[in-house]
Write a protein that binds this DNA or RNA. Structure first.
Lengths: 315, 315
DNA sequence: TGATTTCGTGACAATTATTGTCACTATTAT
DNA sequence: ATAATAGTGACAATAATTGTCACGAAATCA
């Protein structure tokens, strides 16, 4: 095999194996150890971060930095990748230890001039906004680790001003609207709960030997089905004006409930959990006179009660 | 220069130049044209998408696919990049023509086994949620292009059920909460306006010769200062219960107005534009009895009027 | 301690790959 | 037609690559 190709293959091979000896690779590539040594030195010069130790159980290692073999990206793809990573700058906390900024710099630096120009031109013209929050979430890494490794955590959690310790087993973390959430099994409540990560004031692996649940099959994609054990369901129906429709369109969690007529007006229809009546009451009051709730009666009476309470404040 | 190094340099050079002739490169690298031909063929075999045309003004070209030279990413960086791009899957529309999915696949495929394992483990455990909408925004590309190239567009825009043509000059596009928005100069209103991209029903470059404004200095980062020419400002003060504080924390646009006391209660204080009273009224009504507005009087009376209207519906 | 394993380096001849040259073909724009 | 360009094949000259051997240095282990 000609040297030029061997070097490229070698690059991929050393990335695959984390650890190896010169002899081992020499045999694999069918060259002498001397040649392999020379090749490895060349790779080193080309920037592959190799590290070696002598002695038995010694050998070569690729340091944590990995060389990504040359990948063919189309210009569009490269630009899309750039902006995807660029969007992460809005997050004050991330579950990845290193700053994604460093990845971005490398990526940017390695791209050819005109792609870079293109990006510069677009940099202030496209954005994926995420509201920036003051709240920091310092325990994202450990929460994620616990989710991946199925471990139990002991956390201090602030809820309504109180602080309490809880044993939880995270099933993942997700960012929504600039805040991080952690759905987890709560050993205190013996059920699944969602925790807001910025309210977690400490987190450490459980040392009291709480037996982890087998939650490998529960993940962010299917957690809904484990959560939504809502018992009581009730039917909602509400009329919407044109403006009401527009306001509802901008609201995420009622996507499928919204129906629009030709003239722009519409209605909301669908089942809602009884427990959330308070939430829906507030929502519809917020819509003001752009919405008229027809059903369920409980919701209407709840809204009236709420009215009375609020009104009393302003008299 | 040894061949192996020459090939790597060549790879980067052909990426820099879009177009070149064999002779040109041969001179640059100090080899014969024959050798350069052989090298180019090798590059081709290695996956660089080269294309050639004979004849005067012919020559070699690299097709739109670009080879990314080997980059050293740390494992953390690669993982962060993966999830950044992975998050784009939530968007039903993107301003980039190709699917970012293809970039993701390539990236994933080229990573070594254990990084891939790590990603697989994390895939269902981390997410950057963006509400998925039904609304498609098919004109993102042209809006972006117009913003970058300072061009005027003619759009059909739906506003409150009506549809109207407008000449606009976009200054950028951004996604927020799953919806795309386009701040732009509106030649109809002779001022800056924000357009919701899914309400744009057609868009094409202006052919009537509308003279573009010089908006090179206006971009997503500083547009606020051009927009916020709100005239009337008024002072807001509202008390919040513990729960009220928590609800406000989850709301983005009043970040700096929120103050929290030791005991978890708090207050909102700060200037708000007179025009937005209607909006704030709805918001505070939505907070129910967790908030008590003290100032301004106009807001309180607005809220009362709104109450009356709503109440009349349910009696 | 001494045997063993491993990386690391230098020298040199044998072997191979690489290169340049030349002669030629094919295509295309002017 | 002419000139510019890619593309191919053959072959000798050249230069890079390779293997071998000899040796050093560091670490582990019995």
């Amino acid at each position: 095999m000609p040297k030029s190709k061997r070097l490229l293959e070698l690059m991929m091979t050393v990335n695959r194996k984390r650890k190896f000896t010169v002899k081992e690779l020499a045999q694999e590539f069918g060259v002498s150890t001397r040649t392999m040594l020379r090749d490895l030195q060349e790779l080193s010069e080309l920037g592959v971060p190799l590290y070696s130790e002598v002695g038995p159980h010694g050998g070569y290692q690729v340091l944590k930095e990995r060389i990504l073999p040359p990948i063919a990206f189309s210009e569009e793809e490269a630009v899309a990748m750039f902006f995807a990573v660029y969007a992460l700058r809005h997050y004050s906390s991330l579950p990845f230890e290193t700053e994604s900024a460093s990845a971005l710099d490398k990526f940017y630096l390695h791209m050819s001039g005109d792609v870079r120009d293109r990006i510069d031109q677009m940099k202030n013209r496209v954005d994926f906004v995420t509201p920036t929050r003051q709240q920091e979430s310092p325990f994202l890494s450990i929460l994620l680790e616990a989710a991946v490794q199925q471990k139990v955590l002991l956390i201090e959690y602030e809820s309504r001003g109180d602080e309490a310790c809880r044993h939880i087993q995270p099933i993942g973390i997700y960012a929504n609207n600039g805040l991080w959430f952690c759905p987890a099994y709560c050993f205190l409540r013996k059920d699944f709960r969602i925790f807001r990560c910025d309210r977690i004031h400490s987190a450490s692996f459980d040392t009291e030997g709480t037996e982890p649940m087998d939650l490998r099959h529960v993940h962010l994609g299917n957690r809904e089905s484990f959560f939504r054990t809502e018992k009581a369901i009730t039917g909602l129906y509400a009329d919407l004006s044109q403006k009401g429709v527009q306001m509802c369109e901008a609201v995420l969690w009622l996507g499928s409930h919204l129906h629009v007529r030709e003239d722009g007006t519409g209605w909301l229809e669908g089942p809602i959990p009884q427990n959330d009546l308070a939430f829906y009451a507030r929502f519809f009051i917020g819509l003001g006179n752009e919405a008229t709730v027809k059903q369920p009666a409980e919701l209407i009476s709840y809204m009236k009660r709420l009215f009375a309470e609020i009104m009393s404040k302003y008299d």
